[in-house]
């Protein structure tokens, strides 16, 4: 197949890995995506953050050509996800929310299958399979049946498989849900290395705040709409509040501060928290009370507080979530 030479316009567009234009989707009469428009730069790490049911997975399914949009259009690596499905799929690596490995095959056979289905030549299959297995440190398990793998090992194998055919874009749907913190850190380290080395674009959906701190751009979506987008710092600066946590020297100091700053909130038994967004005011306060404080600490805004102030609710109940993830893993493990 020959593709036409890219014109100047196409060349300037190639810096864009994913573009979504006015995308809409409905499920059983309910709007899941509402006229969504966004652009993702090549080589960036883009995180879609939102509670369950916000439309993240639907968006990912449309971008990976598993579902047709009900309105609007989307392009991945320049290929339209409806009209140029094969081209779009070729440039994508996808890690799904639930395991999509064949657990009656060995790790190596799963990779071999993937390589064959993506039409890779035997030599390249062997080289790439060995390389990605090493990347996720599973070389010692290459001939083990996947059924015997732990959740974390499966996840790593799945990420290795998605990278096997050297995609330009990697989709990660809740990639590290149900993984321990150590594995989560390690996986993100691999992905960041790849991004730098190969200009890989990473699109992640998650409802774990910790997972998006390292992203270049965070896009918070809720009810199928983008409610905020920007770098973690920009979002915190725009929507979060900074606080000054302090411990007065004695009861007299505490009362003096409370008198001077009626907006101070009590913090613990002896502490106080002051809103610290206004730098000049904070400096003035510190200049006055410096000698009467035992401890002073700035509390930067967190994405959690950003999310809270934007949507008016917590991302979701953590304990409940972990419980469900374990339950799902147990059910799969048991039946397979």
């Amino acid at each position: 197949m020959t593709s036409p030479q890219p014109g100047p316009e196409a060349q300037s567009l190639s810096a864009i890995a994913i573009s979504v234009d006015g995308l809409s989707a409905a499920y059983a009469g309910k709007t899941v995506l509402d006229n969504l428009t966004l652009e993702i730069r090549r080589g960036s790490s883009f995180a879609l953050l939102g509670p369950n049911g916000a439309g993240k997975t639907t968006l990912l399914n449309i971008l990976s050509t598993l579902r047709r949009p009900d309105g609007g259009s989307a392009r991945v690596a320049g290929a339209d996800v409806v009209r140029q499905q094969t081209e779009a799929r070729r440039s994508l690596g996808v890690v799904f929310q639930d395991s999509s490995l064949d657990d009656r095959l060995t790790a190596w056979e799963n990779l071999e299958f993937h390589g064959l289905v993506y039409g890779m030549a035997p030599k390249r299959r062997r080289e790439r399979s060995a390389a990605v297995l090493a990347l996720v440190e599973l070389e010692d398990w290459r001939d083990e049946i996947v059924r015997s793998f732990s959740g974390g090992m499966r996840r790593r194998l799945e990420i290795a498989r998605a990278l096997l055919h050297e995609p330009q874009i990697l989709f990660l749907d809740e990639p590290t849900a149900g993984l321990d913190a150590q594995t989560r850190v390690r996986i993100w380290r691999y992905l960041d290395e790849l991004r730098r080395a190969r200009d890989l674009t990473v699109l992640t959906t998650t409802h774990y705040i910790e997972e998006v701190e390292g992203a270049d751009t965070i896009c918070i979506i809720d009810h199928g709409k983008i409610i905020a987008q920007g770098s973690p710092e920009a979002l915190k600066a725009q929507y979060g509040s900074r606080w000054l946590h302090l411990t007065p020297r004695d009861q007299a100091a505490l009362e003096a501060i409370q008198a001077a700053r009626p907006d101070a909130q009590p913090l613990g038994a002896h502490g106080l928290a002051l809103p610290a967004d206004d730098g000049a005011m904070t400096d003035a306060f510190l200049a006055t009370f410096r000698d009467r404080l035992v401890e002073v600490r700035f509390q930067d805004p967190t994405l959690e507080s950003v999310f809270l102030s934007l949507t008016g609710r917590q991302l979701r109940d953590r304990a409940d979530d972990q419980h469900n993830a374990d339950k799902a893993a147990g059910r799969r493990g048991g039946r397979r």
């Binding site: 050509t65 070729r90 799904f96 395991s99 999509s100 993506y118 397979r336």
Partner: peptide
């Protein structure tokens, strides 16, 4: 049911 289908459905194979 177990999700493997999606692995092939996102591949370039028709």
């Amino acid at each position: 049911e177990f999700g493997f289908l999606r692995e092939v459905l996102v591949s370039p194979m028709p």
